[in-house]
Design a protein around this nucleic acid. Structure first.
Lengths: 230, 230
DNA sequence: CGTCTATTTGAGTTAGCTCAACCGTCGTGG
DNA sequence: CCACGACGGTTGAGCTAACTCAAATAGACG
């Protein structure tokens, strides 16, 4: 019933309806590059900037004191990072791949970056959409099996990133298995085993560990919703 | 490290920093009552109104086609219900107890209820706070044990609702066990067993099934973060 | 070629689930 | 007034999906 993207729309962060570069362009901005593996900002940092992803993939996460981690979202081009209701960021944000970001300076401790009603309204819409998609993620974390979680994740990436390659729909899986595990509330072993199972069942192919080709998209979608046993 | 409220701030919905009645009062509004057990709105309904809870507790949830349910949040007085980025609500919303709501009419399909920049900015702040607190819930759903989940839940209610009663801090638990289970991603049996365990360990008392007295708040907070075995 | 890290695979364990029985409370109707 | 049924909550017993621990394999890089 709800196979809407449980990825990409989950950042620590807000999402644009589409990668419509320039929506925020009425504000002073400049371009910022971040190398894969480096941090964009940390939880608790002064939230001085809002970022729009132009290129690359980011990971937004939180950690418990004992090291357990929850990845909140993966951000893709078009997504917005760094909205906060107070002066500080509320999650860590790291570059999964090399990034190109557009940076907007915030006004002191205001949520908005500028006293521009249209801009504020745009951010509100983004925030409301964000809440809505986070709710999908709740369903996944709380109520889905490992197979359903992995399938849902792949379907989301497929919808966001998929490209036709000789009959199959393929996409990159730039993040590590541990990132996927922490996103779905699983262990790396379970992620690996489940991907292997989907491969053996002929649902997907894994040309490399970071490349997925979906052989049976229909079946994958069904698995995302109900834990079929075929 | 993060024992901030994983409840109440999670509605399908947005939250006020505090129960500051009247913040939205620049808009036409009236009062609406809903009986315990009745629905306020359903997922997919036309999102014509935004609600502020004046009295009572609401449950916001989503269901999968096979009936599995995830409760997103419980809303308490001061919380805002019904924000949407498009024309429809994105979760079901039901009265856990008798409600008194303040109702605001939305303008067509705009997120905002009125062309009022200050109001819009207020909603944005609420939405950003909402996102931030939903992230805490992610950590809980994805990474915490049953004891930690229940303890976190009780701590959140304690912070929001707790009142001193002869030494202990007590509060109501108006929702059913199944609501708690669907909120925490557990079964009713596990919720019941875990509450019993906390009672037997002397952490809490349960005068009735819907009343909690916290005997050892400090210990409860520790359990909320790390699954101690005492 | 060797080292380091990521991933996969295997074997055994367990937290939480399922199924089932039981109990208490409350409202209804004889 | 009491019997009865419905519903919500608790408790028990056994099962299983996912976890933990451990080892093997595969790339990536100097």
């Amino acid at each position: 019933m709800y196979v809407t993207s449980p990825v990409s729309i989950y950042r620590g962060a807000m999402s644009f309806p589409g990668p419509e570069d320039g929506k925020l362009s009425n504000c002073a901005s400049h371009i910022y590059r971040v190398e894969a593996g480096k941090s964009v900002f940390r939880e608790g940092d002064s939230a001085d900037y809002i970022y729009e992803i132009l290129e690359g993939v980011v990971r937004s996460s939180k950690v418990l004191c004992d090291g357990r981690r929850q990845v909140m979202s993966f951000g893709y081009p078009g997504d917005i990072l760094g909205l906060s209701h107070d002066c500080h960021y509320h999650s860590d944000c790291d570059a999964v791949s090399d990034l190109r970001l557009r940076v907007f300076k915030r006004n002191a401790c205001s949520v908005n970056t500028a006293k521009d009603p249209a801009f504020s309204d745009q951010l509100l819409k983004i925030a409301a959409a964000e809440v809505s998609s986070m709710q999908e993620h709740f369903l996944m974390l709380g109520r889905k099996s490992a197979v359903e979680k992995i399938a849902s994740f792949l379907v989301a990436l497929l919808n966001r990133q998929g490209e036709k390659v000789e009959g199959h729909i393929c996409f990159d899986l730039p993040m590590k298995r541990s990132d996927i595990a922490d996103f779905l509330g699983l262990t790396i072993e379970t992620v690996s085993r489940t991907l292997t199972k989907l491969r053996k069942d002929g649902v997907i192919e894994l040309p490399t560990a970071h490349k997925v080709c979906v052989v049976k998209p229909q079946l994958l979608c069904e698995l995302a919703e109900r834990d079929g046993d075929a």
